[in-house]
Amino acid sequence: MTRAPDILCIGSVLWDVIGRSASVMRQGSDVPGRITRLPGGVAMNIAMAAARFGLTPALLTAIGRDAEGDELIAACDSLGMLTGLVYRSDDLPTDVYMAVEGANGLIAAIADAHSLEEAGDKILRPLMDGTLGSAASPYPGRIALDGNLTRQLLETIAVSPAFAAADLRVAPASPGKAERLRPFLTHSRAMLYVNIEEAGLLCHAEFTEAAEAAEAMIRKGAARVAVTDGGRSAAEAGPDGVIAGTPPEVLVTRVTGAGDTFMAAHIAAEAEGADREQALARALEAAARYVSGDTPL
């Protein structure tokens, strides 16, 4: 790498195949719409948003040495990501995510991140071998970590001395993978970004407001958390208490990637010196612009 990264984005980088329709959909719906293929994955979405907000992200992930992988690497490079540390596998295919969205939100999705899971700790070598850091000299910068990694690898990262100096920002890939983040619920250097459903899964409770969920996560031992609840509210909590905000009202045209945009905007705002209220407000505004379609994909 000729440039130094401002943030490491660790996790899924794949192709998003998304079908979107302006119609309200239910199980079995067959409606007209548009199907797109774009670079995606939680780590990729965070990196793309971070680049839009002025940061220089480096990717730590697994991408196949197939045609789809070569095309994906080229797309990442063109979007301002650093890809020199990506683990390229000769025998693992490039991962893919497929989703269907209607006017009433996400209808269904399947994430095929098997190559990332099989690559395991190979994607972390730059943080272990001295390229970026090591156990003896841990990487001291920002790291965005996504829950598409295996539970075993996330547990390893949570206790690894190679991550002991990092500013860890952690997000689940989906509610179905929220439980994988449990090792970070009591981590002293981690901030968790979750939606209200994921907060409930981690706390084994049901919440009606984001602030209530954030408070509960702090009581469970979390150092810092941000909890979102779609277009209704969001809250950020830490040692200095809980603050809450409401996103601007917009016409929703897409939902996949909104949480990742919120997280990246919040990290970028704090990197620029914004206080808690400013950072939360900027993250909510960025997520609202994204779901409205005003932010480029």
Score class of each variant (00 low, 15 high):
Val100Phe: 08
Gly102Tyr: 05
His114Phe: 12
Ala103Gln: 06
Leu116Ala: 01
Ile110Val: 10
Lys122Pro: 07
Leu116Trp: 01
Leu127Trp: 02
Gly105Phe: 04
Asp112Leu: 10
Gly120His: 03
Ala99Leu: 06
Pro126Trp: 02
Ala109Cys: 13
Leu124Asn: 05
Arg125Cys: 08
Ala99Glu: 01
Asp112Ile: 04
Lys122Arg: 15
Ala103Phe: 11
Glu101Thr: 00
Ser115Asp: 04
Gly120Arg: 02
Glu101Met: 02
Tyr97Gly: 01
Ile107Lys: 14
Glu101Ala: 04
Asp121His: 06
Ala108Arg: 06
Met128Ala: 09
Met98Asp: 12
Asp121Ser: 08
Met98Leu: 15
Ala111Glu: 00
Met128Thr: 13
Asp121Gln: 14
Ala113Leu: 07
Ala108Glu: 10
Ala109Tyr: 05
Ala99His: 01
Ala103Val: 11
Met98Tyr: 10
Ala119Gln: 06
Gly102Phe: 03
Ala119Asp: 05
Ala109Phe: 11
Asn104Met: 07
Ala109Met: 07
Leu124Arg: 07
Ile123His: 01
Asp121Trp: 04
Ala119Lys: 03
Leu116Ile: 05
Arg125Gln: 12
Ala99Ser: 06
Ala108Leu: 12
Ile123Val: 06
Glu118Cys: 14
Ala109Asp: 10
Leu124Glu: 04
Ser115Trp: 01
Met98Arg: 15
Ile110Arg: 09
Asn104Ser: 06
Arg125Pro: 06
Glu118His: 06
Ala113Lys: 03
Met98Lys: 10
Ala103Met: 14
Ala108Trp: 05
Met128Ile: 15
Asp112Phe: 06
Ser115Leu: 02
Met98Asn: 15
Pro126Glu: 04
Asp112Met: 04
Ile107Val: 12
Arg125Leu: 12
Glu117Ser: 10
Glu117His: 11
Ser115His: 02
Met98Thr: 12
Val100Pro: 01
Arg125Lys: 10
Leu106Tyr: 14
Val100Gly: 04
Gly102Met: 06
Ala113Val: 14
Asp112Trp: 03
Asp121Tyr: 06
Leu124Gly: 01
His114Thr: 11
Leu116Asp: 00
Leu127Val: 12
Lys122Tyr: 05
Ala111Tyr: 00
Ala109Thr: 11
Ala103His: 12
Leu106His: 11
Asp112Ser: 07
Gly120Cys: 08
Glu118Asn: 14
Met128Leu: 13
Ala109Ile: 10
Asp112Cys: 08
Leu116Cys: 03
Pro126Met: 03
Leu124Trp: 03
Leu124Asp: 03
Gly102Ile: 03
Met98Ala: 11
Gly120Val: 04
Ala99Gln: 02
Glu118Ser: 15
Ala108Asp: 15
Ile123Trp: 00
Asp112Glu: 12
Glu101Pro: 00
His114Pro: 13
Leu116Lys: 01
Tyr97Met: 09
Glu117Arg: 06
Met128Arg: 12
Tyr97Ala: 05
His114Gln: 15
Gly120Lys: 05
Leu116Asn: 00
